[in-house]
Computed example of a mutant assay.
Amino acid sequence: MHNVKRVPHSQEAIQARKERERSQIVEYLALTNNVLSRKKTRDWSRDAFDQTQQLLELNPEFYTIWNYRRNIILNGIFPQSTPEENNDLLANELSMTMAALREHPKVYWIWNHRRWCLENVPDGPVVDGKPSLQWRKANWQRELAVVEKMLDADARNFLAWNYRRYVLASMPEQRPVMTELAYTTRKISASFSNFSAWHQRSKVYSSLWNTGELDPIQSREEEFDLVHNALFTDPDDQSAWIYHRWLIGSGENEEQLRQEIAIIEELLGEQPDSKWCMDSLVYYCRLLLKNHGPDSEDIKQKCYDLLQQLERIDVPRKLRYQEIGQGM
């Protein structure tokens, strides 16, 4: 706290803390050796299962133990249990991973275990000889709500975004793609620097264009308005610039390419030291020269001038800019 004098710890207190840490390390190593020994002997017992949880609570990134835990479930618990009991066990596993994710939201192995649990949950009650579609829909809707809570807590968690794509692809009835587009709009509007949301947006647009639900030319033009807003708000953030390059693509549309070059030049006039403005202008001018053949010395000279400025303001990448200039 501010304005509170720090009291130095006594030698006794420091020594006691070190002893506690040593004791914790010894206990952790003993538990690790015990669990790995059980794994080696293919111990599929409940006791081994409980010990994997103790170890994973201490070290959730121990992927070998996650694998062992799944093997215990498949080889030791499932064969000896009823479908209802197995369903309860997997529900407990989902609760366990949810608690773990609150503490460690960016540990891949926790997300991976949750995915495995969902893929092994029974299909639920049988209606007219078939698994209940309504039950499956509710199950996946609940999972989508879980991942949305995680993204509300950290909208840039790329593992949560990857998991969201998995959930959306697994739902028995696909959500309208436009619904997901609206979701990314909300996330991006909250923070233009949310690279994962921009990436998700590119996936959504690709799907809409591939299925013919949106006209790629018109929707691209409308999308540039959102990106321009992001670029002018924070020209130093790379997320929107990367998305902008994805929208431009290979630069086949000359009119569009020239229009974006003009807009970026306008932004550079307001932000004369913007590295991303200069870098993008060089990139797009080179696309213009390559695809549309105006053998313009003025455009080449503009690129050379920008590259020289980039060498001065972005020294770690000086050789890269020199190499680009030599290749023109």
Rank of each mutant, 00 (worst) to 15 (best):
M1S: 13
M1K: 13
N3W: 07
K5A: 15
K5I: 10
R6C: 05
V7W: 03
V7L: 14
H9P: 08
Q11F: 12
E12L: 14
A13Y: 06
A13Q: 15
Q15C: 14
K18T: 03
E21N: 10
S23K: 13
E27C: 08
E27T: 13
Y28C: 03
Y28R: 12
L29I: 15
A30M: 10
A30Q: 14
L31C: 11
T32V: 03
T32Q: 13
T32K: 15
N34M: 09
N34Q: 14
K39C: 08
D43G: 12
S45I: 12
S45K: 12
R46H: 07
R46P: 05
E57T: 13
E61W: 03
Y63S: 14
T64G: 14
R69S: 03
L74I: 12
N75D: 09
G76A: 08
F78H: 06
F78Y: 10
P79R: 11
D88H: 15
E93R: 08
S95F: 09
M96R: 08
A99R: 15
K106S: 10
K106P: 07
Y108E: 05
I110C: 08
I110P: 07
N112I: 04
H113W: 12
N120R: 14
G124P: 13
G124H: 13
P125T: 09
V126G: 12
V126F: 15
V127Y: 03
G129D: 01
P131G: 02
S132C: 04
Q134G: 05
Q134N: 11
W135Y: 15
K137F: 03
W140R: 01
R142M: 10
V146L: 02
D154P: 05
D154N: 09
A155P: 07
F158C: 08
A160C: 09
V167K: 01
L168W: 05
P172Y: 11
Q174I: 03
R175T: 03
P176T: 11
E180P: 04
E180H: 07
L181H: 04
Y183V: 10
R186I: 05
R186P: 04
K187E: 05
I188D: 05
S189Q: 15
S191F: 09
S191I: 03
F192C: 08
F192E: 03
S193F: 00
N194D: 06
W198K: 02
W198L: 07
H199L: 00
S202P: 05
N210M: 14
T211D: 15
T211C: 15
L214D: 06
D225T: 07
H228L: 04
H228A: 00
H228Y: 02
H228M: 04
A230D: 02
I242V: 14
Y243S: 01
Y243I: 01
H244C: 11
H244W: 02
R245C: 14
L247E: 01
L247V: 03
G249I: 12
G249C: 11
G251D: 09
E252R: 10
I264V: 02
E265L: 15
L268A: 05
L268G: 02
G269D: 06
C277R: 01
S280Q: 01
S280G: 01
L281P: 00
L287H: 04
L287A: 05
L288D: 00
K290A: 04
N291D: 00
G293I: 04
P294C: 12
S296I: 07
S296T: 09
D298R: 09
I299G: 02
K300F: 06
Q301T: 12
K302R: 13
E311N: 10
D314L: 08
V315H: 06
R317Y: 14
R320H: 08
Q322K: 06
E323Q: 04
